[in-house]
């Protein structure tokens, strides 16, 4: 099949800068009364699936917290389906949005309340291991960093995962696998290392 070549160039990325919280999480930045922070809530009462928290820290190459980061996640629902476009002029929100956005706090810590996703089909036609897509921006990051979070208690699925298996250095696969901590709401913990020995694997998808 022919592939047409693009006729326009993508607009170049620029850093989100140190004040990205103003524009993307204004209430977190104490700018209240205009609108709610988009992506603050992913769940509704009707959301099906296991409630979990995803928590972590964003850390730079000197070991310092990245306090001015914004982290977005995008994931499938418990059945492995993504929230589709809403019908035109619909006022009803989906029971699970699949998309969340959180600011990193002064310690670089972020936290999402979500559900554990189901498996999504991979390019090879086999199910990918359950995962959450992450996108990270901050001062000093020239283009948004794409990575993924996988679940430590899905070892068998992780073993066969299309994307994880593309990471040639097996030790680096561990940078994407969140450990599970039990509690009233189980927590999956994953730190994002921008640089250094534990540097997270980032993707150009």
């Amino acid at each position: 099949m022919l592939h047409p070549t693009p006729i326009l160039k993508e607009t170049p990325s620029q850093t989100a800068g140190p004040y990205v919280h103003i524009g993307m999480t204004p209430n977190f930045a104490e700018l209240r009364g205009v609108y709610d922070d988009p992506g603050a809530t992913m769940l509704s009462e009707d959301t099906k699936g296991e409630r979990i928290a995803i928590v972590g820290r964003v850390i730079d190459g000197a070991g310092a917290p990245v306090a001015d980061a914004v982290i977005e996640i995008w994931q499938a629902d418990a059945q492995g389906s993504f929230a589709g476009p809403a019908a035109r002029h619909s006022n009803s929100a989906p029971s699970f949005t699949g998309w969340g956005r959180q600011a990193a706090d002064g310690d670089g810590v972020f936290s999402f309340q979500t559900i554990k996703p189901g498996a999504v089909e991979g390019p090879d036609g086999r199910p990918q291991a359950p995962h959450v897509s992450l996108w990270i921006v901050a001062r000093g990051i020239n283009i948004g960093l794409q990575t993924r979070l996988y679940f430590a208690d899905e070892a068998a699925a992780n073993e066969g995962d299309y994307v994880l298996n593309k990471i040639m250095d097996k030790r680096r696969r561990q940078t994407l696998i969140a450990r599970r901590e039990e509690g009233p709401v189980p927590r999956y913990v994953l730190d994002i290392h921008l640089q250094g020995e534990k540097e997270t694997v980032f993707f150009d998808f």
Binding site: G61, W74, V163, K166, I167, V201, D204
Partner: peptide
């Protein structure tokens, strides 16, 4: 201190990246 030193792993997008909010 914020630039990853490894190059990004180039993969085609999967369903997870071709969908969006």
């Amino acid at each position: 201190f914020r630039a990853p030193r490894h190059s990004m792993l180039s993969l085609g997008p999967t369903k997870s990246e071709l969908s969006g909010p």
